[in-house]
Simulated assay, not measured.
Amino acid sequence: MEVRGFHVKNAEAKARLEYIGETFLKGYAAAVEAGSPAEAEELLEAVPRDMRGFAYEGAGMGAVVHDALPGHGGRLRGLLAGRGRHHDYMIYVGIGWAMARLPRPLWPDIPATDPLLRWLALDGYGFHQAYFKTDAYVRKPHLRHPFRWRGGHNHYTARAIDQGIGRALWFVGGTDPDVVTRLIRAYPADRHADLYAGAGLACSYAGGVGEDELARFAKGAGEHRWALAQGAAFAAEARIKAGTVIDHTHLAARVVCGTTAESAAQVCRATRPRETGADHALPAYEKWRRDIAAQLASSSLVSKGADQ
Rank of each mutant, 00 (worst) to 15 (best):
L17E: 06
A238E: 03
R101P: 09
A253M: 12
R225I: 08
Q129R: 13
P37N: 10
Q230I: 13
G21R: 01
G200F: 01
G151Q: 10
D176I: 10
L116V: 10
G73K: 04
G78Y: 13
R16Q: 15
G277Q: 09
A121V: 02
D135K: 01
A40V: 10
R52Y: 05
Y89T: 03
D307T: 06
C203S: 12
A13N: 14
G198Y: 04
I20P: 06
A253I: 11
I165Y: 12
A112P: 12
A59I: 01
R101Q: 15
A136T: 01
G164C: 07
Y19E: 13
C268M: 13
R225C: 10
A215M: 08
R289L: 11
E237H: 11
D114K: 01
F24H: 12
Y92T: 04
A112T: 12
R269E: 14
V65W: 00
Y56V: 04
H192R: 07
D291I: 03
W226S: 07
V47M: 02
V138P: 07
F147P: 00
V267E: 03
L17A: 03
K14H: 11
P37G: 03
E211M: 06
L169F: 14
Y156D: 13
E237R: 09
E286R: 11
S300P: 08
A59V: 02
R274H: 12
R75K: 14
P177Y: 02
V93C: 07
F147C: 00
P111A: 01
G124L: 06
E41S: 13
V302C: 12
R4L: 15
A306N: 11
W288Q: 14
Y19N: 10
R77W: 13
G173H: 07
E2Y: 05
R104K: 15
G305F: 14
D291W: 09
W170S: 02
V180L: 05
D190I: 00
Y205S: 04
G94W: 07
R289S: 15
A261T: 09
V47S: 00
V245P: 07
T157Y: 04
S298V: 12
G126F: 02
I240V: 14
F234K: 01
A168N: 06
G164D: 04
R83H: 10
H155G: 12
G243R: 06
A202G: 09
I240E: 11
A98Q: 06
V65A: 01
A193W: 05
R75C: 09
A242I: 04
T260C: 02
K304M: 14
A46H: 09
Q230Y: 04
L80W: 15
A68I: 08
V245C: 06
R216E: 10
D109R: 09
A261P: 07
T175K: 06
L122G: 03
A235Y: 11
R239V: 03
V179M: 14
R272L: 12
A221H: 05
R254W: 13
S300R: 05
R139W: 11
A38C: 05
L183F: 13
D114R: 02
E223Y: 05
I184V: 15
R16G: 09
R85A: 14
A270L: 06
R272M: 13
K14G: 08
S204L: 05
G173K: 07
L69R: 15
A160Y: 07
L102R: 08
A281C: 07
L106T: 01
S204D: 06
D67S: 07
G74P: 09
Y56L: 07
G166I: 04
A98D: 11
F24G: 02
A46F: 08
G173R: 09
Y205D: 11
Y89N: 02
R269W: 04
A63E: 13
